[in-house]
Design a protein around this nucleic acid. Structure first.
Length: 283
DNA sequence: GTCCAGGCTCTTT
DNA sequence: AAAGAGCATGGA
């Protein structure tokens, strides 16, 4: 078991704000997730974040988990800076005060957000679970149920299109298959995306079948650690329209506005806005 | 039955 | 560049 002393961190908010899809609540304040090859139990005691790997080969490396939970970033400074730039973010920052933007596996984010397009979050979770069960490797058994790793690019590239369709992926089946094949062909260049700038990496991501501007920004934000990404989905569109009167604004005008409001921290602003809007669903 | 979801691709203006 | 049709699936 490992522990981190933390502030500005609330695992409930982190796991329910739509950036991660593989955490399940198993008790009042306890969650279990699969992160890379580790089945991990997670809970909070006062100002302490506790983590315990459940599988033998799982990792309890402090550095790895600090990076995953974005522990070393100063969210106090971050929020103050955002508030100075855009005072009307106050309600969203307060509401999602424990949100942190996780640093997740790149390939997992790529496939996950391809599946997310034009889809509901509960169904996205379900599809990912089926994909892991079918193409991942078993990591840990608890009685009847088993936790699986996220499939590798290789295993998904070798999948059968009909079988993917039978799992309920819909028209996204071909996107997943073709993108997985493309990643295999890129080999080491795929992980090399981390060394590229936001714009360079985005260009590469947009070349994958099933990845458009919104999905690319999610991958850049959650998988490549680029806070300059500002994914605009239906919820964010709603909140931008309501808060800033942008319902009839052209895409370029919106982009410019976002840049002026939030600058290089717009990815964090987006996550607070998304969570606030979706949790306070009021059309 | 209709609407909608962390949209994208392809076609047409 | 921008706007529109079509798209699998399932829950509300």
């Amino acid at each position: 078991m490992i522990q981190f002393k933390v502030n500005h961190l609330n695992i409930k908010q982190i796991f329910e704000c739509g950036q991660a899809f593989r955490w399940e609540q198993i008790g009042p304040d306890t969650w279990i997730g699969v992160v890379e090859k580790t089945v991990i139990r997670c809970w909070q005691e006062a100002d302490t974040l506790c983590l315990e790997a459940l599988n033998e080969s799982g990792s309890e490396d402090m550095g790895f988990w600090a990076h995953y939970f974005d522990i070393d970033r100063n969210y106090d400074d971050l929020k103050q800076t955002l508030l100075l730039r855009s005072p009307d973010l106050a309600d969203a920052l307060e509401f999602g005060s424990g949100i942190r933007v996780l640093n997740q596996d790149l390939f997992e984010m790529l496939i996950t957000f391809i599946l997310s397009s034009n889809n509901h979050i509960p169904r996205i979770k379900q599809l990912i679970m089926r994909l892991c069960q079918r193409y991942g490797e078993p990591l840990h058994r608890v009685n009847e149920n088993c936790y699986y790793s996220f499939p590798t690019a290789k295993s998904l590239a070798a999948a059968d299109l009909e079988e993917l369709r039978s799992l309920g992926l819909g028209y996204r089946d071909a996107y997943v298959l073709e993108t997985s094949k493309a990643v295999c062909e890129m080999a080491l260049d795929f992980e090399g995306l981390k060394k590229l700038s936001y714009n360079e990496a985005k260009k590469v991501l947009l070349s994958f079948n099933g990845v458009g501007p919104k999905v690319a920004d999610c991958i850049l934000l959650f998988g490549l650690g680029k806070p300059e990404a500002f994914p605009i989905d239906t919820w964010v569109k709603k909140t931008l329209a309501r808060r800033y009167n942008l319902q009839n604004a052209a895409p370029k005008a919106i982009e410019l506005f976002i840049e002026q409001q939030f600058g290089d921290l717009k990815g964090f602003a987006q996550q607070f806005l998304f969570y606030f809007e979706r949790e306070n669903e009021r059309s």
